[in-house]
Design a binder for these strands. Sequence first.
DNA 1: CTTTGGATCGTCT
DNA 2: GACGATCCAAAGG
Length: 208
Amino acid sequence: MNAADAALPRSFFERDALAVAPELLGKVLVRRAPEGTRAGRIVEVEAYRGEDDPASHAFRGPTPRTRTMFGPAGHLYVYFSYGMHWCANVVCAPPGQAAAVLIRALEPIEGVEAMTAARPGARRPVDVANGPAKLCEALGITGVDDGADLVVGDRAIQVLDDGTPAPDAPGVGPRVGISVAVDHPWRWFDAGSPFVSRAPARSAVTRA
DNA sequence: CTTTGGATCGTCT
DNA sequence: GACGATCCAAAGG
């Protein structure tokens, strides 16, 4: 984290989630706390849209749980999954539309020791934040952080641009863990990063 | 290496 | 009452 690191403007998020998602690769998700700062570079994301996306929590209109998704862009949408995990999204789209980008994996870059300590189950360094629930545990993100404004950092959680460009040719593929709309290639990841939640498709790799 | 099943509970039908 | 935008350990090849 350097002084030159800049928060992304609201306008960055007020666009189609399909446009925002790949551009989020390379950005930094930061959590500041009295005990120290924890941060990771975003290496994997998935886009979820609104009424035209059956896999999206916003598909059936606003509910108490998804109200953040229907709110202003640039906020954090955190939901509880499988009775034990938290997952974090960045709310996108112009006002009036509901969409979000799920952060699926991070490369730990600051407060690595604290992140690792927060994940006793991680066997290897790459396992600390290579999954949507894992990164929330590593950064200490829970339901109380739902609604945090990532642009102004009102709750010490932000998405920063440290000058690192998004990958020129990111990996693309279907979203993970869904049972509908499985044909949409709305998952993007840094194909060269060992910190993604799943390795690139084996079929696409030519063996020497 | 891949596959399978258990954990665990809020949310929406 | 069923089902997850998951993770992990254990069992099978």
